[in-house]
Amino acid sequence: MKKWMKAAAAALTVAGVLSAGTTSLAASAQPSKMFINGVYQEDVLVVNDRTMVQLRAFNDPKSFVYSYETATKTIIIHNPVQKMTVHLKNGLKTAEVNGKNVKLDAPVTVKAGRTYIPVRFVTETLGGKVDYDNGAKHIIVRTPTGEEQFKTLKNGDLAEARALAINLTRVSNGTEIAPYGEGFTTTYRFPKGEALRYFISYKGLETYVEINAKGIAEIKWQKDTLGENGEAGKEPKPFGESVTFIDNFMADMLNYGSVDSTGKYTELGVINRYIDKEYANVIIMPIDGETRTDAR
């Protein structure tokens, strides 16, 4: 499988890696919305007025190997690239980094079997990045690989950027309409040469999405084409020329093609994933001759 296909299939996957006991919190509250690698985090904490990242969500197989030492109740993070080993223990306000103690803004906190560490430690020690959208009240955290993907999303390979874009959590700016029709097909439509805005059609619901400068996918418009739930947001102008990817997940088939300014569809390819196993989970395909025009 080509390198970009592997990246597309694995884009923005977040996996759990730790399990431990529980402890009481000095304080807990739900902060502004947090995103890790573009994925919205429903379960975050504030401890001693410090925002805490869920360690299991800060998952980056290329950069970190996590383990748990039962005998000493120690969480171990190994970074083979930076030759760094970190030891964490529940309740402590220090972390051991390559044998040296590093002070934490708030104690390592375990709640309901999930381990949380301060955002500052993630950014300053583990090599992550944190960004803030003060207007939307978003905290945006990216792992080292997530930062690479963010750069690709903004100005990298067009097909890979589109694959990343459709895997981002879609955030509504007001009323969000849920699909209720029947069907097993999802259609994605991008303007020719672009990756940062698209339409998605599913079960009679049309949704228009834009990726903002912080890498968050915002729902700008929705319309229930079946008529029951009406419309929300402002309908965008037509794309003109566009490319379309039609994913029938029940049949495990992918059809893709181009649409001209008059709305005429030209099929460019069909993939049967039952036969072509290398395309498992692939939705976005490169279009011959298409050049990216929306790089930032």
Rank of each mutant, 00 (worst) to 15 (best):
K154L: 04
I177K: 09
V119M: 10
Y180P: 04
A112R: 09
A159V: 15
K137F: 07
I200C: 07
T123M: 06
E176W: 11
R120I: 02
L196E: 03
R142H: 04
A165S: 11
R142P: 03
G128C: 02
E160R: 08
P118V: 05
A136L: 05
V110R: 11
P144Y: 02
I140L: 09
E176V: 10
A112C: 14
K151D: 15
G156N: 08
G127E: 06
P191F: 00
V171A: 13
I166V: 15
I200Q: 07
L126A: 09
Y132D: 02
Y180Q: 08
F199D: 15
K154V: 08
T185W: 01
P118R: 08
K203M: 12
G193Q: 00
T115H: 10
R189D: 10
A161C: 07
P118N: 01
I166Q: 04
G128K: 14
I177W: 06
E147C: 00
N173F: 11
Y132M: 05
G204Q: 08
H138R: 11
L164P: 03
R189E: 10
T185H: 02
G181K: 04
K137P: 07
I140G: 01
D131V: 05
T123H: 02
N173S: 14
I177E: 12
F184Y: 13
I140P: 03
F184S: 06
L168T: 03
T115P: 05
N167S: 12
G135T: 08
R120D: 01
V171C: 08
A195D: 11
A161S: 12
Q149C: 03
P191A: 04
E194G: 11
G183T: 07
A163S: 14
V119W: 03
A112Y: 14
I200L: 07
R162D: 00
L153A: 06
R197Q: 08
L126P: 00
T169F: 08
R120Y: 02
R189L: 09
S201D: 12
K129F: 11
T125V: 15
K137S: 12
V122A: 00
Q149S: 04
G181P: 05
T185A: 09
K192N: 09
V171D: 03
G146K: 10
A159K: 14
I117W: 12
E194Q: 11
L168E: 05
R189Y: 05
I139D: 04
E160L: 14
Y180I: 02
T169K: 05
I177V: 06
T143H: 06
R170V: 12
G174Q: 08
T187V: 07
R142D: 01
P144D: 00
